[in-house]
Amino acid sequence: MSGKTQPASTLLGATILAAALAGPVLAQWPEQPVNLIVVAGAGGGSDFTFRLVARELEKAGQPVNVINQAQGGGLVGYMSYTSAKPDGYTLGQLSPFAQFRILGQADFTAESFTPIALVNVDPSAIHVATDSALGSLEEVIAALKEDPASLNISCGGTCSASWDIPFVSLMLAEGVDVAGINLIPAAGSAAGLQELASGGIDVVLCSVPETDALTDAGLVRTLAVLAAERLERYPDLPTAVELTGKDVTGGTWRGVAGPAGMDPALVAEIEAQVRTAYESPGFQDGMKERGFGTQFMGSADFAAFLKAHEAQTQEVMGALGIGAP
């Protein structure tokens, strides 16, 4: 059986037409070095987490440069990557951000970012000194119901942020007049915990791993964790949900994001590589060794999570009388 051979030009034209009909074809990401902006200083939990992510992403063959921009409580870093070209080569840390708009410091909303993947969640916890008269979470709640200003409560850093927002949300659910709560900022959790151990503070709100040294020294006791379930590393610590029946959780969280307007196909490609980095033994073992929690959300679930974060932050800060209504 015989047939005519198609001219090369005809075959080439058919190939081009088929490619056009199939839509744009993205090059494999990354084809050049990537900048990953961390909105916190070197040496902390955020820096550690994203250097682990960067190390694993580099296995794709391109350098991933971690750039720390902690100025202005992270605002400089957020502004830096949200104003970048949405081509996937400038990405950044996305952590609790809703307080900036409420405080009038920036106009970030969930739509300011392209969420790619969540990789870390560390729940807030409620800590007292070992010799404190407060023996339980229920006693903390009772004291605050009787007199909201009766306890000096350290936010474990900046107030209206990661550690105190879920605590205040729980107190709201318990009927406490949260506008009267005495929340005290500190120069980080370590400073707040030292004040707790020396008697200057009644309660510190921060993650559990940050208390390890003082707990081991017999100076600090954790009353409850604001998590959905008990932490694997601390199985003896009860959750606030168990103790109160109020389904209130929260703390800090860290994810990878880019500027608004990124191509969905590119987002899916980067998300897949971040998931591979997240699932790697290097990331999982490194996080576990430091006591940091791991949790993965893809782009769609992360986007919904951001909306819930905005709603909770608005509710709590409104109840505290902070910012615009």
Rank of each mutant, 00 (worst) to 15 (best):
S9V: 15
V267S: 08
G291A: 09
E289Q: 14
G73W: 07
Q295I: 11
K59Y: 02
E195K: 14
L320F: 09
G104M: 10
P185R: 00
L266E: 01
K246V: 09
P185W: 03
M1L: 12
A14G: 03
V248Y: 03
A300D: 13
G180Q: 03
T249W: 10
F50T: 00
S154R: 01
L103Y: 01
P185E: 10
G43L: 12
Q194R: 13
S160H: 13
Q32S: 14
A257K: 02
A110R: 13
V140F: 09
G3T: 11
Q62H: 03
A18R: 04
G286I: 01
S136F: 06
I201L: 12
N120H: 01
L134C: 13
T130Y: 05
G318V: 02
A213Q: 11
D212T: 11
Q99S: 08
V34W: 13
E146M: 10
Q194A: 14
A324E: 14
A106E: 11
A161H: 11
L26P: 04
A173C: 13
R233N: 06
P33H: 03
L151A: 00
M317I: 04
Q295M: 13
A54Q: 01
T90G: 00
S150R: 05
E195F: 12
P235S: 12
V241L: 15
L137H: 09
F167P: 12
N68M: 02
A40H: 05
L52Q: 04
A304Y: 06
A308F: 08
A42H: 15
L118P: 04
E242D: 05
P325H: 07
R290P: 01
S198T: 00
A191K: 14
P209C: 12
L193H: 02
I165D: 08
V267F: 07
H127T: 00
F302Y: 07
A42C: 00
D202S: 06
R290C: 07
L196H: 00
A70E: 07
A324S: 15
L57E: 05
V168S: 10
L94G: 02
V316S: 00
V241K: 13
D164R: 11
A173R: 01
